[in-house]
Design a protein around this nucleic acid. Structure first.
Length: 386
RNA sequence: CUGAGGAACUACCACG
């Protein structure tokens, strides 16, 4: 078991999905999924390789009494893979099985509340934290600072922050980002320049982003140049600065100069090119990029459709290895914008899941087609209106 | 003495 765990940990850190999957097969054959430590490693492996539903499968198939660590693994797998609703649900289940949450369980669950603006659930977790005596844990309280800020209660964030007996760089960054998100750049700045402030590359990048959002590109550039350390996210944020200004060539310049690129850098460049009708260059980047995710495909599809090449967009859509609701919406909207209502509606009918954007696109389509009755009918059938 | 936890960047519609 020791060897399996050590190997799994290596695969987790190198994100090597092939090796990990083979180890999983070996685990099943040898029956060692009954060993908690092995199961925990497997859940974490699938979480880090962004396959949370395989994490869940391992969780469900493990034949032992779940411990806090088992729960911690599965809850964080959901929270880190954009599945906040499931994270909260599994936190609830854990509590329902009389398992007392520990200091590792709370931050993931609180993060999940922050992701979906569930301030009520967040407050509920906060009172559990107080009751169980975890409010001095720096991970727990930093996650609360972040949660209140994301739910729009920045003053609660500040109060918590001021009362923390000890803070680390994440506590500082959560609060500073909170002020930036609320548009209170001045307050963010005051904190950032406080002599006792703890800052790292994430904090600096958040500040750069703050200036970008206010269209203060010169300030953003100044801060970016002054950064003691930059990483790929900092560079991506600078690309975004020029995206906002509509400076395509500056975007491409940063893209070429940056010391390393990740998938976000490529996606940003492609989106920008497509928005400025440089379709073939965008297509070339898309073909060149080392790996593509659902965002890359959707950006490509949207760009083609916006430039009137909707049939090519459809080919891209059909070629997608995975689709989500956004990609479906993008394709539907592409048809709508090109006055191809029938194809749009056909997709709308068969799509596996709809959100308000799907309905809005279709409704707009019928309106611009002069078919107000069907627009009205769809509007009435819309489950959630915005 | 194993393992799990919190902060910053990209794609669709409408609104601003």
């Amino acid at each position: 078991y020791r060897d399996i765990c050590a190997l799994l940990l290596t695969q987790t850190h190198t994100r090597s999905s092939l090796g990990g999957t083979q180890l999983h097969a070996h685990v099943i054959k040898s029956g060692s999924q009954a060993v908690p430590l092995v199961t925990h490693h497997l859940i974490n492996f699938y979480s880090k390789t962004q396959l949370p539903f395989l994490s869940l499968q391992v969780f469900d198939e493990s034949g032992f009494q779940k411990t806090r660590t088992t729960w911690s693994s599965i809850i964080s797998a959901f929270a880190q893979n954009e599945l906040p609703v499931l994270a909260i649900e599994y936190f609830r289940r854990m509590v329902g099985e009389q398992t007392r949450p520990n200091d590792h369980n709370f931050p993931s669950a609180i993060k999940a509340c922050a992701m979906i603006d569930q301030c009520d659930a967040g407050k509920c977790l906060h009172s559990m934290v107080l009751k169980m005596g975890y409010s001095c844990d720096v991970f727990v309280s930093s996650s609360l600072v972040d949660m209140y800020a994301k739910c729009g209660s920045i003053s609660d964030s500040r109060k918590l922050f001021d009362e923390m007996p000890e803070r680390d760089v994440v506590s500082w960054t959560a609060l500073i980002s909170g002020y930036i998100r609320c548009g209170l750049m001045e307050e963010a700045r005051r904190l950032f320049y406080r002599p006792d402030a703890l800052k790292n590359v994430v904090t600096w990048t958040a500040m750069v982003r703050g200036y970008v959002r206010l269209n203060l590109v010169n300030e953003a550039e100044r801060l970016f140049d002054a950064m003691p350390v930059k990483n790929v996210v900092s560079w991506n944020t600078m690309m975004d600065a020029y995206v906002q200004m509509g400076q395509v060539d500056k975007v491409l310049d940063v893209f070429r100069r940056m010391p390393e690129k990740n998938i976000v850098s490529w996606n940003t460049a492609i989106t920008m090119l497509m928005r400025h009708r440089r379709v073939d260059e965008g297509r070339r980047l898309f073909d060149e990029m080392p790996e593509r995710d659902v965002i890359s495909w959707t950006a490509m599809l949207t760009g083609l459709a916006r430039n009137g090449r909707v049939d090519e967009a459809r080919k891209v859509f059909d070629g997608m290895p995975v689709r989500n609701v956004v990609s479906w919406n993008a394709m539907i909207n592409g048809y709508v914008k090109n006055m191809r209502l029938n194809e749009a509606f056909e997709l709308f009918r068969i799509m596996p899941e709809r959100n308000s954007s799907s309905w809005n696109s279709m409704i707009m389509g019928f309106i611009q087609n002069g078919d107000l009755d069907r627009a009205r009918e769809l509007f009435d059938r819309m489950p959630v209106k915005n």
